[in-house]
Amino acid sequence: MDRLASRFAVCKSQGRAALITFVTAGDPDVAATPAILDALVAGGADIIELGMPFTDPMADGPAIELANLRSLGSGTKTKHIFALAADFRARHPDTPLILMGYANPMLIRGGDWFADQCKAAGVDGVICVDAPPEEDAEIGPALRAAGVHLVRLATPTTDAARLPTVLNGASGFLYYVSVAGITGKQSAAQASIEIAVAKLKAATDLPIAVGFGVRGPEQAAAIGRIADGVVVGSAIVDIIGSHGDAAAPFVQTFVAALRDALHIRETAA
C-alpha cells in the first residue's frame, strides 16, 4: 500500500476523516517553508498539499493568489519547490505530499520531466487545476508511468453523465470542490455537500476529500463526518499572510484545532 492509501486507511481505522492542509511553496519565502510544513505535520495534518506558485492562478481567490505573488516575489523557482519536497520527504517519510498547481509551470519542460521530478522528490500525487480529463495526454500518462497519483477534481457542475470521464484515470483520492467558484470565498451548504459526497461514493471506491471554502474547525468537523478527507487551504494561507516568516507556531495551533475537531485521540504517524 502506498503512502496515500496507507494514510487514508489509518484515518479510517481511527474513525475520522483525513486532514489535508494546503500551503503555497515559498510563501512567504523558500527559507520559511520547511518550518511551516513541519508545523502542519506537528499540528496533525495527515496529507500535505504543496501549492506550486503561478503568476496567473485563475481558480484561486485573493488569499491564495496573494500567496502565489508573495512566493514568486521572493524568488521561488521550480527547482526550489522540488528541493522543498525532497527535504520534506526525508524529514517525514510517511506523510503523503501532493503538489497542486497550474498546468503551465508543471508542463513547461514536458510532462515526463515533471513526473520524473515528482518521483525523485518523493511526491505522492499531483493536482493540476487546469488540466481536465480532456487534456489528460499532457500529464496523465507521464505521472502514471512514474507511479505518481493524478488526483482529479469533481465539482458541483460535474453531473452524473460526466463523472465517469473524471474518474477515468483518477487515482489517490477524488477531490470534491464543494462550491462552483474559486478558493477561499463562499462556503457550500452542508446539505449540498452531503448529497454530492453520497453520489461520488456510489460511483467510486476512491477516498473522497472535500475542499474549497472550509474555513474552520466546526465546518471541518461537519464535513469530516461524511467525507474521507477535509481540505483546508485559504484559512491557513491567511495566517501565513498575517505572520510571514513567524507563521509556523500560529499555523500549528490552527491545524491542531482542526485536527481536534475531527475527533481524534490517537496520534498519526
Binding site: A131, P132, E134, T157, R162, V177
Partner: peptide
C-alpha cells in the same frame, strides 16, 4: 474535435467550467 489546432488550442480549464 477536441479543439486542437495542430499542437495548440485545447480546453485547459478548471473542472467547474468544463460542463459549460
Amino acid at each position: 474535435a477536441n479543439g486542437h489546432f495542430g499542437a495548440f488550442g485545447g480546453r485547459y480549464v478548471a473542472e467547474t467550467l468544463m460542463p459549460l
